[in-house]
């Protein structure tokens, strides 16, 4: 298997799907001539030309709407947001147009499109530009929400997203783009709605998604040194969520911690905990704990930002607590 960056894995996925289906096109700020703000679309303008790789004005609501319209008439748009923080301006199109048109048209209009871009905090981008939006988006019936944490999943899931006939929200991470991982050489699709057990252990289930998968793997390594072996359940897709995979793991370990990048209240972890209490009530040996961003706007100061973010130390502490080891 080749070792690729998350960024290059995404580029491969885009290229393969642009080649495979000429209804697919990419649209967004700086995606063409500048090769993308984070260089995900590097080289695509040269290969596919300005009709397929389209630079837009700085008008999130506008080009998101154009995307929905294009999807209604049979194209398969990929709308790139420079970051999901900017996509707030476009949420009316995402939530009211993309997510609901199939339903409100009585099935006459499919919306086979992808909204993608980096999500969550990077480093010192401050309160307005350091936000994880998956729980907002996963709240909406009609959307699928994908949160790949590794290059292989990024590629496999983006290809699945592009081929899906529903609007798919695809959440990447600025801090993820340079991370590396093995990616199969041959073509493959990662199924939407299927979690992956990224690490196996009997003592506790650590359920996570997106950028936090990397943190979870570090936690698993750290705990293994102490003889604690955990399941790392990477949800990969937060909507639809793989409840079965969660239950399977928790029924085995009897304990769970949910790790996510966003805030506590109504976060993705809330939903995971709800599934666990419903599906695994008699299997639980301790309350499920959550690790998440502190309930404050992201501080700019480096030390405060570090304190506000979920991290390996907080996760280890939570796992020891549910194991009654603290």
């Amino acid at each position: 298997m080749a070792v690729l960056t998350y960024r290059d894995a995404l580029t491969q996925a885009l290229r393969e799907e642009l080649q495979r289906d000429d209804r697919v096109f990419l649209m967004g700020e700086e995606v063409a001539q500048y090769n993308g703000a984070y260089k995900v679309s590097k080289g695509l303008l040269d290969e596919f030309g300005p009709m397929r790789i389209v630079d837009t004005p700085i008008t999130e609501l506008g080009f998101a709407g154009i995307g929905v319209g294009a999807a209604m008439v049979g194209l398969r748009p990929i709308v790139e947001f420079m970051t999901w923080n900017f996509a707030l301006l476009a949420l009316d199109e995402v939530v009211n147009a993309a997510a609901k048109t199939f339903y409100m048209s009585g099935g006459q209009f499919k919306i086979p499109m992808v909204f993608r871009g980096p999500n969550g905090a990077a480093l010192q981008l401050a309160a307005q530009h350091s936000q994880a939006w998956e729980s907002w988006l996963a709240h909406i019936p009609g959307l699928k929400v994908l949160t790949p944490g590794t290059p292989a999943d990024a590629k496999g899931l983006l290809k699945s997203a592009i081929r899906d006939d529903n609007p798919v929200v695809f959440l990447e991470g600025e801090m993820l783009y340079n991370t590396k991982g093995e990616v199969p050489e041959e073509e493959y699709l990662t199924p939407i709605g299927v979690a992956e057990l990224k690490r196996e252990g009997d003592h506790c289930s650590l359920i996570t998604h997106g950028k936090m998968v990397l943190v979870a793997m570090r936690v698993a390594d750290d705990l293994a040194k102490e003889g604690i072996n955990i399941d790392v359940v990477d949800l990969r897709t937060v909507r639809p969520m793989d409840v079965e995979a969660i239950s399977r793991s928790v029924q085995k370990t009897n304990r769970a911690v949910v790790l996510e990048e966003g805030w506590e209240i109504c976060g993705m972890g809330s939903q995971v905990v709800d599934f666990i209490q419903r599906e695994c009530f008699d299997d639980l040996d301790s309350p499920v704990l959550r690790v998440h961003q502190e309930d404050v706007p992201m501080p700019y100061a480096k030390n405060l930002e570090r304190a506000a973010k979920p991290d390996a130390g907080k996760t280890v502490a939570a796992i020891k607590k549910v194991m009654y080891l603290d």
Partner: peptide, 10 residues
Amino acid sequence: PPRPPAPSAP
């Protein structure tokens, strides 16, 4: 019970 200003895990 968990309250908004406090993190739940640690």
